[in-house]
């Protein structure tokens, strides 16, 4: 058992290295760094400008600006994680023709996928810091690194990492069992964007959709991130819930997502092998 864990860990890190090598080598290092910095800044500024125009920068709306900026900052974890999973499947299948070999490796395909997607954590983390810095210095958010509740933030992010991986494995296995799967990663990321409370509270969604969104762990995670960074000075999606209650809901939602992801994985894996899609050729 111990040896299996060591080997699994070793394989995971190799997949992280592979993911990093692939995602960071598409251009020269200088351009890669410029792209990695400018992308999150532009994303944050677009939203901030929209917000300023709509609210006329009124003081009463400041807590909502903080809501928007923190949600956008942490959203990059989902964007990067989910899209990298989907890209991993599509690239390995259509571009590198390696999917069947990595799939057959004893490490286990989900561990390999998680490793490849984890490589994006570094750029996603950098993106979070960049957007928060822009929020603080350019938009005047009262973020103070000394008053952030780091234990709550780290715990929430660890739980969210598990949930994002479960979401992404589910998506990847669906891609594996599908014939034409281009664009699904982005569709899934945009779908989660609307349902996670990243840019607006989930209570604004129509009734059944709001209920559906309340089952997702992402809303609770972003709520805890906002509270950990700017407690009391940010718009809250669940003002009636204490931090502990939000955390409890996050744990329950993550557990549900993991169980759902596991069964979807089993089903999709079998479906892909039944249909013979694993070594299918696809265009890239």
């Amino acid at each position: 058992m111990g040896l299996a864990i060591v080997r699994g860990w070793q394989g995971y890190w190799v997949a992280v290295r592979l993911g990093w090598a692939i995602s960071s080598n598409w251009t020269r290092p200088f351009l890669f760094i410029v792209y990695s910095i400018l992308r999150p800044i532009s994303m944050a500024l677009i939203l901030a400008v929209m917000y300023t125009v709509i609210t006329h920068n009124s003081a009463a709306a400041r807590p909502y600006l903080a809501f928007l900026i923190i949600g956008t900052a942490f959203w990059s974890f989902i964007q990067e994680g989910v899209s990298e999973f989907a890209t991993g499947i599509l690239e390995d299948r259509g571009r590198y023709h390696m999917l069947k070999y990595t799939y057959l490796a004893p490490l286990g395909f989900p561990v390999f996928l998680v490793g490849r997607a984890s490589s994006k954590l570094a750029s996603a983390s950098a993106s979070v810091v960049i957007v928060l810095l822009v929020g603080t210095f350019a938009l005047g958010l009262p973020i103070n690194p000394l008053t952030i509740d780091y234990p709550l933030l780290v715990l929430a992010c660890l739980l969210a990492f598990v949930a994002i991986m479960a979401f992404s494995i589910t998506l990847s296995m669906v891609l594996l069992a599908g014939r034409d799967s281009h664009g699904y990663g982005e569709i899934m990321a945009q779908f989660l964007y609307l349902f996670s409370g990243a840019i607006f509270p989930i209570s604004l969604l129509p009734g059944p959709l709001a209920w559906l969104a309340s089952l997702s762990p992402l809303g609770y995670w972003l709520e805890l991130c906002r509270r950990a960074i700017l407690h009391g000075r940010v718009y809250e999606m669940f003002p009636q819930l204490s931090d502990g209650e939000v955390l409890a809901r996050l744990v329950a939602a993550v557990a549900g997502t993991v169980v759902l992801g596991y069964f979807t994985y089993l089903l999709s894996d079998r479906m892909a092998r039944r249909r013979g899609y694993i070594d299918m050729e696809s265009s890239w």
Binding site: Q10, V14, A15, R17, L18, T102, A105, P106, L107
Partner: peptide, 15 residues
Amino acid sequence: LRVREQLWLFSQLYG
């Protein structure tokens, strides 16, 4: 990847 890198990577996936 370099040839040795890819081969080593696979060796790690096989433990």
